[in-house]
Design a protein around this nucleic acid. Structure first.
Length: 483
RNA sequence: GGCGCUAUCGUCUAACGGUUAGGACGUAGCCCUCUCAAGGCUGAAAUACGGGUUCGAUUCCCGUUAGCGCUACCA
């Protein structure tokens, strides 16, 4: 039994590849709306285009949604009272509804070949009129239609758009939007392969699954009049619509591949936190009405409302994503980070010793991280001796006297019993005094010897994390090889 | 081309007729400092344009321009 008073929403992706960040945002808003209103969030797979189907895409979609923390209530593998939730398993349902439309004369068979349709469109383009099916098959005598059908001729079913009607869409985000039916094409509802098109399947499923609010991307706004008409044909009340602004590339075109990463998967493997990505994406087109920007998923649920969703497209700005991710990273417990970093290190072929050591490395590095990827780029020296030394740093921080300084430091360190940040500072300063140079001179050379770089945590912290053996080994190695 | 949507700092956005047009990312400078971060302070930076309506327009209306979306037997 479904509770009629509670909203039901769905995320209805097409399994044609990886989950897109735009798709994630659409899924997120549906999820937030459902949770906020104590409604139901449904996942439905729209796989009616056999030619674009990608093997494993459904599993990937579900796994990525799970990683993102967007748990659905009904859907493939989860069950629910309105299944099946995969459109290719609902073909008979669509067939029945098409027959109903045919019987009511709201739809008709069309035998036109794609060659003829192409030719027709070319002519229309030449005459500079809107490309639209010319209804040749609508004028076919009934007998001829049934005859050709009986002969097994290839055909599709088109919806019959009424003439001179005004179709008004009530959109929660955009207000009322009007369309003239004369501009609307007689959309194909059932393809010649027996599969429905998006328009038919979407309307039928939304109705049968009790969807109350259709929250989807703005690219659907133009075809919504067709959907509204279908609801009328069937004698159904349409759901509420909310068309979300698009996510854009830096050049303001619709967010696409080729201009950077668009798959959620890409950000996942780049070491971003799901809560960081989700938080960032939530802010693309929605804001809480005050100046807070960092939210957990639960906090987003609490704050969300469709009324605060904007209308203009938003550019996906990776710089801001890094900052948002960093904010989440800093709120995480070090133990949690340890577990999240391990798989990333293993994948990069980096051995980290034991968990306690990794935890200390994270303690030293956490304020410097924007994503876990940073570990594999500028924290490698925690896991193996530097193979090379940064040239610019060498030029700036290494001098002819440095080997002598490091040598003196090394022998003093051998005799330092506690090797603590406090004692190390004393030892380094003592060396500086001994050679009458500034402590900075020693510090910078030591950092270079230990890390191969000029940046990183405070030197004494770095030394205690690395430990006496490693520090001594690297000091000697640098004294010999650096010149 | 047609139809539709949209328009505040470079970017994400706030201001639902009256504000020195606010915040955040980024950016510039300063402070802190052994470096890099983090943190603190300061600065530069926007209402696309033109008409209305109004005592008063970022805000309402119209037009222009620009961008985007749709215009498939793809979703």
């Amino acid at each position: 039994m479904t509770d009629q008073s509670r909203p039901r929403v769905r995320f209805a992706p097409s399994p044609t590849g990886f989950l897109h960040v735009g798709g994630l945002r659409t899924a997120l808003y549906n999820y937030l709306f459902a949770r906020k209103t104590q409604g139901t969030f449904i996942l439905r797979i729209e796989d009616t285009d056999r030619s674009r189907y990608v093997e494993g895409a459904v599993e990937n979609l579900i796994a990525t949604l799970a990683w993102s923390g967007l748990e659905f209530d009904e859907g493939p593998g989860k069950g629910g009272g309105s299944g099946p939730y995969i459109q290719s398993e609902r073909l008979d349902i669509y067939r029945r509804h098409v027959d109903d439309l045919l019987a009511k004369k709201h739809a008709y068979h069309c035998f036109c070949t794609s060659d003829r349709l192409d030719e027709m469109r070319k002519q229309q383009e030449k005459m500079r009129i809107a490309p639209k099916y010319d209804r040749q098959c609508l004028r076919l005598p009934v007998g001829e239609v049934s005859g050709r059908l009986a002969d097994g001729a290839q055909s599709v079913v088109r919806m019959r758009i009424p003439e001179s009607a005004t179709i008004t869409i009530r959109d929660i985000i955009r207000g009322d939007v009007e369309f003239q039916s004369d501009r609307v094409d007689d959309q194909v509802l059932l393809k010649s392969d027996g599969y429905p098109t998006y328009h038919l399947a979407n309307v039928v499923d939304d109705r049968l699954m009790g969807i109350t609010h259709v929250i989807r991307g703005e690219e659907w706004l133009s075809s919504t009049p067709k959907h509204v008409l279908l609801y009328q044909f069937f004698g159904w009340d349409p759901p509420q619509f909310a068309h979300l602004p698009l996510l854009l590339n830096a050049d303001r075109s619709k967010l696409s591949k080729r201009q950077g990463d668009v798959a959620v998967e890409d950000y996942r493997s780049a070491g971003y936190l799901p809560e960081g990505l989700v938080n960032f994406v939530a802010l693309l087109g929605w804001n809480p009405g005050d100046e807070r920007e960092i939210f957990s998923l639960a906090e987003l649920v609490n704050e969300f409302s469709l009324e605060r969703v904007g209308k203009a497209g938003a550019i996906f700005n990776v710089e801001k994503l890094k900052w948002v991710n960093q904010q989440h990273l800093r709120r995480l417990d070090a133990g949690v980070i340890v577990e999240k970093v391990k798989p990333i290190l293993s994948r990069a072929g980096i051995a980290w010793g034991d968990d306690a050591y990794l935890r200390r490395v994270i303690g030293a590095m956490r304020d410097r991280l924007t994503s876990f990827d940073d570990f594999t780029s500028f924290a490698l020296y925690f896991f193996s001796d530097p193979a090379t030394y940064d040239e610019a740093a060498k030029k700036k921080n290494w001098s002819a006297e440095s080997p002598a300084h490091l040598g003196a430091l090394a022998s003093k360190l051998e005799g330092d019993p506690d090797f603590s940040e406090g004692s190390l500072e004393g030892v380094v300063k003592a060396v500086a005094v001994e050679f009458t140079v500034s402590p900075g001179k020693i510090i910078h050379a030591v950092r270079l010897a230990l890390s191969g770089m000029a940046i990183g945590p405070g030197l004494y912290e770095l030394m205690t994390v690395l430990g006496r053996d490693t520090v001594l080994r690297r000091l000697r190695k640098a004294s010999e090889s650096l010149r």
